[in-house]
Design a binder for these strands. Structure first.
Lengths: 217, 217
DNA sequence: TGGCATTATGGCAGTAAGTGACGCGCGACG
DNA sequence: CGTCGCGCGTCACTTACTGCCATAATGCCA
């Protein structure tokens, strides 16, 4: 029995994701360098070495090309929350994960992170990019619900879970936007060392303290 | 002395808003009846009795035509929070405002509300409408910051205010989406009577209890 | 290893969203 | 009563995006 059911010469899911990310990288870079309006689909296609037609097969709109890269910013927070063991407080876990993240960082991943934050910051002026960012956050928020539900020992569609997920997503988003702004405006990168604490406090605050503590037992 | 300073035959701001709302009404109705993709700019223009060119003068994209109407859903919550007197708890104030809102409702406003919720619900399937909804909420959230700042007696750009604004906005959004879903799926409208309490509890929870109580003194 | 099925891709023509330019009409003001 | 400012319509134009068909690439199975 195969868990991943793909027939014929179908592209593997991981490969598809890689390709989308690659397109996203080039598109985001162009958006950053010359603005969204000044960047055409043809340019993106040429930059990534594909035909324009193929770009539109992988992305519905030009702006959405930025989503995968931009999503990695919040994805980092998502990974933390997903891998959050019950017996740890959020502060402890986030701090540990941050160290691991920094240790595992490659030159490329650093560039990606920087570029993603740039796009987020650019969203202040470019509505098109703002929607891409909001959509990415929206996607994260939807994935957040089951994670929080499991944390609280509630069914995923419980009416108390969704507001918590929304608030947590908002906290994550606000935090990322804050980082993006500070980084872009000359950047006091020193303050970013307290990231885990800030993030944990924001989530804790956003969920009224319901999400944050270690779970006994 | 004229407070609204307009020279020549300039369109007043209120008139401009009215026109945008009118366009939004027709566009949203068409989106609802036949889907976004099946609705062309020409159709919207014809429905509202303007030229297509004028539609694009008032809205940058087709989907954004839905924003003004859809924004009224959250705007209701915004109005409540904006007019929230310090000496009342959120529950008390929201309950009073809801009564007023129901009393002042006209046939048209009821239709508008219904249509707006329909568009919100439709956003689950139509990404284009989802972005419109998210943008509307985003706008509300930005306006929320100063309101919350004033409530807490903090400067608007305080680092504690923005997460609260984001979380409150998310709570508002989640609540509206919940209402939209229930209303669309056959609708237990009975439960909506507790709207003020739910909304207040959501905001309270989203801000860690910092926003919700009456302010003494 | 080699055929087969399935899918990703490229090229091209077509649709429709969105823009710039120009002229008209209308209401405001002297 | 002229003329000024501005919203609106018309038309030509650019470009994001889609269908369609041919072809190359890939995984499965003998």
């Amino acid at each position: 029995m195969t868990t991943t059911r793909r027939r014929g010469g179908a592209m593997s899911e991981v490969r598809r994701r890689r390709l989308r990310l690659e397109i996203s990288r080039e598109a985001s870079r162009l958006f950053w360098e010359q603005g969204v309006d000044a960047t055409s689909g043809d340019q993106i296609a040429e930059a990534v070495g594909l035909s324009t037609r193929t770009i539109w097969r992988h992305f519905r709109t030009k702006e959405s090309c930025a989503e995968p890269l931009v999503a990695r910013g919040v994805e980092w927070g998502m990974l933390i929350l997903r891998a959050w063991p019950p017996h740890l407080s959020l502060e402890e876990h986030a701090a540990a994960e941050r160290i691991r993240h920094v240790e595992e960082a490659t030159a490329d991943s650093v560039i990606d992170d920087r570029l993603a934050l740039g796009i987020v910051a650019l969203g202040d002026r470019e509505p098109a990019l703002r929607t891409a960012w909001l959509m990415a956050c929206d996607k994260v928020e939807r994935e957040l619900a089951p994670v929080i539900a499991r944390r609280l020992g509630l069914p995923a569609d419980d009416h108390r879970v969704l507001p918590h997920a929304a608030a947590t997503g908002a906290a994550l988003r606000a935090y990322n936007e804050h980082v993006a702004r500070t980084l872009l405006s000359g950047g006091d990168t020193q303050g970013l060392l307290h990231a885990p604490a800030h993030l944990a406090r924001a989530v804790r605050g956003a969920t009224g303290g319901a999400v944050g503590d270690a779970i006994a037992g």
